[in-house]
Simulated assay, not measured.
Amino acid sequence: MIDRRSLLRTGTAAAAGALGAASLSSPAEAAEPASRTGGHPADPDPTAGVTRTLLQEHPSPAAGWEAVQTLVQIPRHKESGRHSHPGIEVGYIIRGDVLMVFDDRPPLRLRTGDPFFIPNGVIHNARNVGTVTTMMLSTYVVDETKPLVTTYP
């Protein structure tokens, strides 16, 4: 698990590196062509260059919860890595094309201008499948006692 306070203070490639410690979810996926996975098959670090920048953080009206907003940038052929959050994520694709892959449901193709919602605890991975660096605005309402992001191999 990643300490939210550390992650939010850094907001740079170092935080993205910690965020992206996870790899593709299965050896079969790793062998698929780049067009299916969003990364290059031989890429040793599919999360390199992913950044999450803290924009704002505020206490929620509900005790024990807080609202956190970030700008997530995912370079071409890269991905966020499999992860979850201790609360909901409400997002918007500012620029780019993403294949949002979930452990428990079909993938969701998102393009510039598309909103998205990820329920509490759902494991997901945002893969840039477009031609530019993807920019996503992500707002979380999360348990303030837990790390913002938990990564999975």
Rank of each mutant, 00 (worst) to 15 (best):
T151Y: 06
V141L: 05
Y92N: 14
T37R: 08
E89H: 11
V50Y: 04
L110Y: 03
W65H: 04
T37N: 03
G17C: 12
R105V: 15
R109L: 08
G121T: 02
A13V: 05
E32S: 08
G87R: 00
S138A: 08
L108D: 12
H85Y: 02
S60R: 05
T47F: 02
H58Y: 08
P86C: 05
I2R: 00
G64Y: 13
T47W: 02
N120K: 00
V132K: 06
A28T: 01
S35F: 03
L137A: 06
I118F: 02
S35N: 04
P86V: 06
R5V: 08
A31N: 14
P33I: 01
A126V: 12
P61Q: 03
G38Y: 02
L137E: 08
T134A: 03
Q73I: 10
Q69A: 10
V141N: 06
R95A: 09
G91K: 00
T133Q: 13
P86Y: 12
H58P: 09
H83C: 12
M1C: 11
R5L: 15
A13K: 08
P33Q: 07
H124N: 04
L108N: 12
T51W: 03
P153E: 07
R9M: 10
T53L: 07
R127T: 05
V142Q: 07
G130F: 14
G20L: 03
F117K: 04
F117T: 15
D114F: 13
A30G: 07
S25L: 04
S80N: 15
I88A: 12
G11A: 03
N125V: 14
A30M: 07
I2P: 00
I123V: 09
P33Y: 14
A22K: 10
H77R: 12
P153Y: 15
T47L: 02
L137G: 10
M100Y: 07
Y152K: 14
D114R: 15
L54D: 13
L148H: 01
